[in-house]
Amino acid sequence: MLQRPVDTDINVYHRLTSVVIGEEALREVWMDKQDEYSLVPGCPSDRPLKSNYFYFSLKYVPRSPPCVSHPLSLIEIGTVLPVVVNRPILSPEQVQEETEEAEESTPKLIDGSSPQGPLSPGVQIPEASGGVSTCILCGCIRTTVYCDDHNLDAVPPLPKDTTHVYLRFNRISKINKNDFSYLNKLQKIDLTSNIITEIDEDAFRTLSNLDELLLPDNKIRQLPELPHSLSFLDLSKNRLGRKGIKQEAFKDLKDLRLLFLTNNHLDHIPIPLPDSLQALHLQDNNIQEMHEDTFCNMKDYSYARRALEDIRLDGNPINLSKTPQAFMCLPRIPVGRLI
């Protein structure tokens, strides 16, 4: 049973099936666009329930750049639960005969294999921890893994072809060296709102395709080595302080566009910053001064940093009016105190 809300504006055709096998659900999703979906166990609240149906919802979340919100649409899916049939107890000979008859009646492909043989390529069966598949404990849609708000205290084993992983609102306290190292296709890690205090120095360094690393609202005191592929790094609401960011930590991140370091007890602006940077958020720190060459090149007055249009220094004790020369190369004056 597949029902789609009348008021939805999803312009995507899709086919979804859910088959209940014992205590595990095998789910397949076919889509013609690279959109993200999230399967949420639950029941529809606006219609009567059928006792022989297993319900869950599909949350549609269009891909979008950061800070852009979209309305969510829900698609309700139900599948008939297995029906228990009372059957007489068979002798071993009768079981053998019945099995042979079933095999003979099963259609075969040209190569002689059964169409009900190996699972189709669209179905992922990832590595399991403690006998429970991560994708059954959490939820997997194509190469995206959703493990939000599952009270996890460590990063679970993930499918090797994972590209996006969401581990928000858990109780993870440490990121180990091998938690992500085997995920060569990983593009996004979101660990928002955990209790991370320690990250292994090489936990992210070898992830050559990692584009977004989101670690806000944790207790991180030391920034580890970062992959040069990053374009978005969010470390807001942590405890980096004066020594948490190594010297020239961002120098080689040539593709970095967004750097968020809000509320980290910082007393300085970490430099040098790559020319690719478009937004630098440093609100609610303890930055008291800025040098004239923090953003600009005082030896070359023709130098212009045109990409860096969004600098936030509000909530710091620094008086921006004391260093007007520091903003000459910028397209806009930073947001902050001017008196």
Rank of each mutant, 00 (worst) to 15 (best):
Y146R: 07
E103K: 14
L119W: 12
E36C: 11
C147P: 06
T323I: 07
C138I: 05
P272Q: 00
Q34C: 07
C329S: 01
V12E: 15
C140Q: 01
H228K: 15
Y303P: 03
L223H: 03
Q94A: 14
N263G: 02
E201Y: 06
T162G: 09
L330N: 00
P157T: 05
L191F: 02
L215S: 00
M290P: 00
V68M: 04
S91G: 06
N52E: 13
P227C: 05
Y301F: 15
Y60T: 08
P317S: 06
V145L: 12
L253R: 03
T197I: 07
L253K: 04
H268W: 04
L183V: 05
V95D: 07
L313C: 04
K160C: 13
I89Q: 14
F250K: 02
S113N: 15
D284V: 00
L49T: 08
G131A: 11
H150W: 06
R221D: 01
S114W: 10
D190Q: 02
E76I: 04
G42C: 03
N297Q: 08
D234R: 01
P216E: 03
R47N: 06
E248S: 09
A304H: 13
S321T: 04
N170W: 00
F180K: 03
I196N: 02
L49R: 09
D179N: 09
M298H: 08
Y303L: 04
N52I: 05
I195D: 07
G42P: 04
G131T: 09
E103Q: 12
M1F: 10
C43E: 14
S114T: 11
N263R: 08
N184M: 12
L72I: 15
R87A: 14
E24Y: 10
G130M: 09
P41L: 05
T262W: 01
H70I: 07
L119D: 12
L119V: 12
I318P: 00
P227R: 09
D310T: 08
N151E: 10
R63A: 11
I136H: 13
I141L: 13
L167S: 01
T163Y: 08
N285Q: 05
I271F: 06
D9L: 15
E76A: 05
E103H: 13
R168Y: 00
D161L: 11
D310G: 00
H14Q: 11
V132K: 11
L183N: 09
L266S: 02
E289P: 01
D202Y: 13
Q94V: 06
Y182S: 15
E23Q: 15
A326M: 00
V68Y: 04
N194F: 01
D46R: 08
I269T: 02
F250W: 05
I141R: 11
